[in-house]
Amino acid sequence: MSLAILVVLVLGILGGMYMPVGITAFLDQASTVMLLILLFSVGIDLGLNRQVFEQVRKLGFRILLIPLGVILGSLCGGALAAVITQTKIKEGMAIVSGLGWYSLSGILLTNAGNPIGGTISFLSNVFREMITFIVIPFLVKYLNPYCAIAPAGATAMDTTLAMISKHTDGKTAVIAFVSGVICTLIVPVLIPLFL
């Protein structure tokens, strides 16, 4: 899937460079509509997971500490990266607020009139997903299974869940899924805070 996304992204970039301005302007506008359609579809998926609320009750509210750690950790990392790259701290936090949900974070920044920040955010959340795939086995081996959920952020409910499940146990996979759903629900609230 990551590969398909990269191929389509490169095709889009080439299209944007070489297609007539009329078409690219239309596609640029169309992205907002595409996002809304995608979010409607994602919303249905989220709603189907009623058992998440039950799981939180069953496992105890302490498991909410994991998505909390993901959010606080990401924001601190984003602030530090902002200092290093001499970006505004607020913008740095907006960039990482996607928690790996790349289709949402980039476009929100771009639509807020910051195409540079939007591109960084989009790419950085794509990279985050890739890094997650690579580091999960090491986090389980050298730290603890909960740490495998940390890099995944919002992707723990879909793309990276299989990887987490493969390297940990059933219970951690359930916690990962719950954490992924909670992160996904928080992202649309989190990003506007830093726009």
């Binding site: 996304i5 302007a25 596609l27 996002l35 195409p115």
Partner: peptide
């Protein structure tokens, strides 16, 4: 939808 959106985002970057 995701792939179409990614394509559109690529176009935004490219243009």
């Amino acid at each position: 939808w995701l792939l179409l959106l990614i394509f559109c985002m690529g176009v935004s970057i490219g243009r």
